[in-house]
């Protein structure tokens, strides 16, 4: 198969970028999208030109590093897959394919198709944890959790933090990501002690990182490679309102120190 690629090239975050065209020739239909980019890059290297920089790690849909907007869709034309799981047979022979980075103020472009998604890490740092007693590992059945609850928590635990929700959102909002993390820990008994503090901290970090606000259009769930439902955002809204309400009536302990 042969394609024409229109790829976003940008040397660094301060220099403006632009789309440039490259031919991709003799591509096997069963190559993945990233393998196709490898082939193009090999050719560019042979021609002594700068290869296209793109992010990737596992190439099997679990690490969330590959962050491409292909033909205007985050993670490309197939449903419920990451960019690395897109195969060239999904495209028409001879097609022109546009490849852009995830665009958002919170994700500065580092180079070409590589963006800095550490804003998501900072959201996790602010609340995406539970406190566990040190010592022996607890007995497997010491804390029974209903099957239903475990499944619901697992559905959102699938989130790999790839940031496609931010990329697809009309407002570059990270609310699907935050709602997945808040729901995952908030459903389980281990997550209860920090539940209110967590949702407030994660939302305030999200706001400080310059993500946009959800306008309930659900573009995020349409591109999520893990099929996380936007209904979780409703749960996030609920949790946040209740936590804030409780906070308004709770006095901070004066003896509480650091530690």
């Amino acid at each position: 198969m042969n394609f024409t690629l229109r790829v976003w090239r940008q040397p660094n975050s301060r220099t403006p970028g632009r789309l440039e065209s490259y031919p991709a020739r003799n591509i096997d239909p069963n190559m993945s999208f990233l393998e196709m980019l490898d082939v193009v890059n090999e050719q560019l290297t042979l021609e002594n030109r700068e290869p296209i920089a793109f992010d990737h790690d596992c190439r099997e849909g679990i690490c969330g590093m590959c962050s491409l907007v292909i033909d205007g869709e985050a993670h490309g034309p197939e449903e419920r897959v990451t960019s690395c799981q897109i195969y060239m047979r999904s495209f028409k022979d001879g097609a022109t394919i546009t490849v852009e980075p995830f665009r958002s103020k919170a994700f500065p472009i580092l180079k070409d198709l590589i963006v800095d998604r550490s804003a998501l890490d900072r959201i996790i740092q602010s609340g995406g944890f539970i406190s566990v007693n040190t010592g022996q590992a607890p007995d497997a059945n010491a804390l029974p959790i209903g099957k239903d609850l475990a499944e619901q928590a697992f559905d959102v635990a699938h989130c790999i933090g790839c940031g496609a929700c931010v990329a697809a959102c009309k407002n570059a909002s990270a609310m699907l990501f935050v709602s997945a993390k808040v729901t995952h820990l908030g459903l389980l008994p281990q997550g209860q002690p920090e539940r209110d503090r967590r949702v407030r901290a994660m939302v305030s970090t999200m706001d400080a990182e310059h993500f946009g606000n959800c306008t309930n259009q659900y573009e995020c769930e349409a591109v999520c490679p893990k099929g996380i439902s936007a209904a979780n955002i409703a749960r996030l809204n609920r949790d946040y309102a209740l936590a804030s309400l409780k906070g308004m009536f709770t006095k901070k302990s004066e003896s509480a120190g650091g530690g």
């Binding site: 852009e100 306008t215 573009e219």
Partner: peptide
């Protein structure tokens, strides 16, 4: 206020953008 915030959250637009399910009314 929200609308301005949301515009600032994506300063550079996509050169090609395909809307998945957001209706015209919502946009």
């Amino acid at each position: 206020w929200l609308w301005l915030d949301n515009r600032r959250a994506r300063p550079d637009h996509y050169r090609q953008e395909r809307t998945q399910q957001a209706g015209l009314a919502s946009r």
